[in-house]
């Protein structure tokens, strides 16, 4: 049984889903959670329910805004104090930026973006996609402990049978020292929806969308089913959508439960970025488009006719 710390990010009152997925998967180990700042009661309960023994809330001046340096210094203190064997986090914007620096401060190894893992005794064995999911490999971490792991959101899934932990909440005062790079201002993105990398449902448009305005019909569909809208590289390169919406090898790698590809032919670099989606629906006029080889449900048809019908039909179904 390994001694493990899970860095948990908060989303309002709640713990981010990926941290709970990790907790559920780690059931049976000795697992603590750590948050930055005050941790809301709801979040503590969620962590406890999924198996957290302790929930530490780190507090210091200089932690009000995110900084890799500040967060790393704070986490380093608690990691060294409690001698963890492993430290986990979700592969989110913060996790991706923070964890390499944190691992570096301790000269320790880190496995990025694993999609599954198991423990052989106390030894971590991970699986992760490489080349944007064109292939997978097993990954082991070598060298001094603790070992660091980031896990891709939505990859593990929640553990419905997770055994609850005590969830003892403790505030811990830390000293993060001098910080050079710190967030001064945040400009909210247009979308209030979940990021593509965390979204459960994605509706994506390709070059066949013809222009930026036509993305309106995808937004309408997305609103009905609670999806985030994405785009292919061709659509982004043609100026129909910003790069933050790009799915694929030079965009975001996603694994939602449902991916609806509209007018996307399925270039190899796009398929690489979305092939791990659990269910794929493709709409394309070309019956030979490569996207259909990956689709669970393929509709050979014109997206401008099919998408509004889908929106109406989903509305119909979900209102029942």
């Amino acid at each position: 049984m390994a001694k493990i710390l899970v860095f948990t990010e908060l989303n309002g009152e709640h713990a981010k889903g990926v941290a709970l997925e990790i907790l559920g998967k780690l059931n049976g180990h000795n697992v603590d959670c750590v948050c930055i700042g005050k941790t809301p009661k709801t979040a503590i309960e969620e962590m406890a329910k999924n198996g957290a023994s302790n929930v530490f809330s780190l507090q210091s001046t200089g932690l009000q805004n995110y900084s890799a340096e500040g967060y790393a210094a704070a986490l380093k203190e608690i990691i060294q104090k409690n001698n963890y064997d492993y430290v986990f986090a979700g592969s989110t914007s913060v996790g991706k930026d923070l964890f390499p620096r944190l691992a570096g401060t301790l000269n320790c190894g880190m496995a990025s973006e694993v999609t599954n893992f198991l423990f052989e005794g106390d030894k971590f064995l991970g699986t992760r996609p490489l080349f944007a999911g064109k292939c997978y490999a097993k990954v082991e971490i070598l060298g001094p402990k603790p070992h660091f792991v980031t896990v891709r959101p939505n990859a593990l899934g929640m553990n419905a049978a997770a055994k609850a932990g005590t969830g003892a909440a403790t505030d811990v005062s830390v000293n993060v020292g001098d910080i050079k790079a710190i967030v001064k201002e945040v400009v909210k993105g247009a979308s209030e929806k979940l990021d593509l990398t965390e979204a459960n449902i994605i509706v994506s448009g390709g070059r066949a969308m013809k222009n930026a305005e036509n993305f309106k019909i995808l937004n309408e569909l997305a609103d009905v089913i609670g999806a985030t809208v994405g785009a292919s590289r061709a659509a982004v390169d043609s100026g129909f959508a910003p790069h933050s919406m790009q799915v694929g090898q030079t965009g975001k790698t996603v694994s939602p439960a449902l991916y609806i590809a509209c007018g996307i032919s399925g270039a190899i670099q796009h398929l690489a970025g979305m092939r791990t989606s659990k269910v794929i629906v493709a709409i394309n006029t070309d019956p030979d488009a490569p996207i259909f080889t990956k689709a669970d449900y393929g509709i050979v048809g014109d997206l401008f006719q099919i998408v509004p019908l889908l929106t109406a039909e989903f509305k119909n179904l979900l209102l029942k």
Partner: peptide
């Protein structure tokens, strides 16, 4: 200095063929 060791590189499992429906 090695911190990561990879093994068992493999291709992702091929999905079974889906259902394709004509709606032209």
């Amino acid at each position: 200095d090695m911190r990561i060791k990879y093994s068992a590189f493999s291709l992702p499992p091929e999905k079974p063929a889906g259902k394709k429906m004509d709606a032209m």
